[in-house]
Amino acid sequence: MKSIRSICVFCGSNTGYDEKYKKTTIELADYLAVHHYRLVYGGGRLGLMGVLGNEMLNKGGDVLGVIPKVLVNEKLTRISNDKIITTADISERKQYMLDASDAFIALPGGFGTFEEFLTMLSWSQINLHQKPLALLNIDGFYDPLIQLLKQACDAGFAPKENLNLFVSSNHVPELFDQLAKFQHTQPNKWTN
């Protein structure tokens, strides 16, 4: 597998109520900066997205924000114009993020974060990409989603092998160990 240098992080435009989400986001940003990964993210200044981008920039990290035209707003955008790409819409944003990244991590977030993660998972399932995909499962935040994905497999709507298309961990270094070992195997999409 190609080495990972550019990582797209999906995360919320809110910080959540528990301080641990912000704390782990800072830990992730520090890890990315120290290990010289480029961050590809939503480009926002609010929520975990803002925490992540600000921490990376403060550490001198390499940052690329990708924001759809509909969300361009000086209150929402944090980074300078030379570090941001504006796309026509959300679909073009996701395609740009896919093309610009070697791997994906989802931090806790809301509906947009879920949609971005599930899009990349679905695209992996049909072999549109073979890149590592991970959930940073802070304090079990993603346990219900993982359970739902297992339930879809158990009910015959997806092959069980699809559960190998992503990795999950509560700890940043362990998550990167799993990303480094990730091997994409395209399962047969049809179960019956």
Rank of each mutant, 00 (worst) to 15 (best):
I4H: 11
R5D: 13
C8W: 01
F10D: 03
S13E: 06
T15Q: 14
G16N: 08
K20V: 15
K22S: 15
I26W: 07
E27L: 12
D30A: 01
D30Y: 00
Y31V: 04
L32W: 04
L32T: 03
A33K: 02
Y37I: 11
Y37Q: 10
L39T: 03
Y41C: 11
G42T: 06
G42N: 05
G44R: 07
R45E: 14
L48D: 08
M49F: 09
G50M: 12
V51D: 02
V51H: 03
L52R: 08
M56W: 00
M56A: 01
L57T: 11
N58Y: 03
G60Y: 09
D62K: 02
D62M: 02
V63K: 00
V63D: 01
L64T: 04
L64C: 03
K69V: 03
V70M: 13
V72C: 11
K75Y: 11
L76C: 04
L76Q: 10
L76H: 06
I79V: 14
I79H: 11
S80C: 07
S80R: 09
N81V: 08
N81F: 02
D82F: 03
I85C: 02
I85T: 07
T86Q: 10
T86V: 15
K94L: 13
Y96I: 14
Y96K: 14
D99L: 12
A100R: 13
A100G: 07
D102R: 03
A106W: 09
L107R: 08
P108Y: 10
G109K: 00
F111I: 15
T119F: 15
S124Q: 05
Q125L: 15
Q125V: 06
N127C: 09
L128M: 09
L128E: 03
L128H: 04
Q130S: 12
Q130T: 10
Q130C: 04
P132H: 04
P132M: 03
L133W: 01
L135K: 06
L136P: 05
I146K: 06
L148Y: 05
L148C: 06
L149T: 04
K150E: 10
Q151C: 09
A152S: 13
A155K: 15
A155T: 14
G156H: 13
A158I: 08
A158K: 05
N162G: 11
L165M: 06
F166W: 08
V172Y: 09
V172I: 13
P173I: 10
L179N: 02
K181Y: 05
H184N: 06
T185A: 07
Q186D: 00
P187E: 00
K189Q: 11
